[in-house]
Amino acid sequence: MQDSGFFSLFGLGENSLRLGVFLGVFAIMALAEWALPKRERSMPQGRRWLTNWGIVILDSLITRLVMPILPIGVAIHATNQGWGLLNWIALPNWLSLLIAFLILDFAIWLQHLLSHRIPIFWKLHKVHHVDRDIDVSTALRFHPLEILLSLIYKIIWVLVFGAPAVAVFLFEVVLNGAALFNHANVRLSPGVDRFLRLIVVTPDMHRVHHSNRPRETHSNFGFNLSIWDRMFRTYVAQPQDGHEAMTIGLDPYQDEKPSQFIWSLLLPFLKR
């Protein structure tokens, strides 16, 4: 399938498709949080959302200025040049797409684990973790430098494995939607949660990752598929204190500062 033909099927460009899906999933999860909330909020929602939306808008502006060529564009170029493992092996299109999707999902899991294990990356990633509530807006909250490093990281994987542009596009859309879903403060029945987390990361599974307890903070690194945490033994099923009573965020920052826009951007450069 030609990449340009894929996007033209919808009569829209890549950016319009991604933005439309993103806003649609955000709206659905925000409504679900209103209808079926899992936890009481500890901070005013308006100020947090203003900060979290401000961060993602800044991320988008900086990304466009600093890195005009994004992973999908790199994937198209790699395919045209015959670069990468999947461009050297004759495989059916559907199998190349599936393999590329799984490789990229593992790559993001590994990146997330490394962002916890390597101190300089943890300084940036803390901006995401200091949010004292976890809801759909938390999925937007990543420091601009972390976003830029993430793009470079993904581009390297795309080049090495020759991921088709369609696979990269589908992965990016699914990843964004999955992050909005699993950060949502929404209540799922235990049976639905148990079934879904056999395949994907659910809100209850990812909420454990935002606990203030270090063992729980440094677990459940998946954003989309749940298999990697089970495979590499970084899976924690439930928080020790229960979902309603657990403390969200990091212990040194249990105050109003995480809801401040400028403070959040400066956090990686501040002494504790």
Score class of each variant (00 low, 15 high):
D105M: 05
M205I: 15
K126Y: 13
S259G: 07
F7N: 15
P258T: 12
G191E: 04
I134Y: 12
K38N: 13
L12E: 07
G82Y: 05
F10K: 04
S96N: 08
I76W: 08
G73H: 05
T217L: 02
A78F: 11
R215T: 05
M1Q: 14
L95Y: 05
K126S: 08
L31W: 03
R141A: 04
R213S: 04
V173K: 15
W122Y: 11
L270R: 10
R39Y: 09
H116T: 00
A167G: 07
R132V: 00
I248M: 07
R187Y: 14
F181N: 09
D105P: 03
Q45G: 12
G20T: 12
L110V: 00
A184S: 15
V127N: 01
D59V: 10
E40G: 10
D3E: 15
K123W: 09
S150L: 14
L17V: 00
G13K: 02
I156V: 15
Y253G: 01
A107P: 00
R39H: 07
P258S: 13
F121G: 08
Q254P: 06
V136D: 07
D229K: 08
S60E: 03
G11H: 09
K38P: 12
P239N: 04
L266T: 10
S8M: 11
N15K: 11
R48A: 09
K126E: 10
I76Q: 10
P252H: 10
V186C: 08
D229F: 02
V186N: 05
R39M: 09
L175R: 05
L65K: 12
G11M: 11
E256T: 04
F22L: 13
I76A: 11
R187D: 13
L159W: 06
W88G: 13
F22T: 15
T138F: 04
I57H: 06
V166A: 14
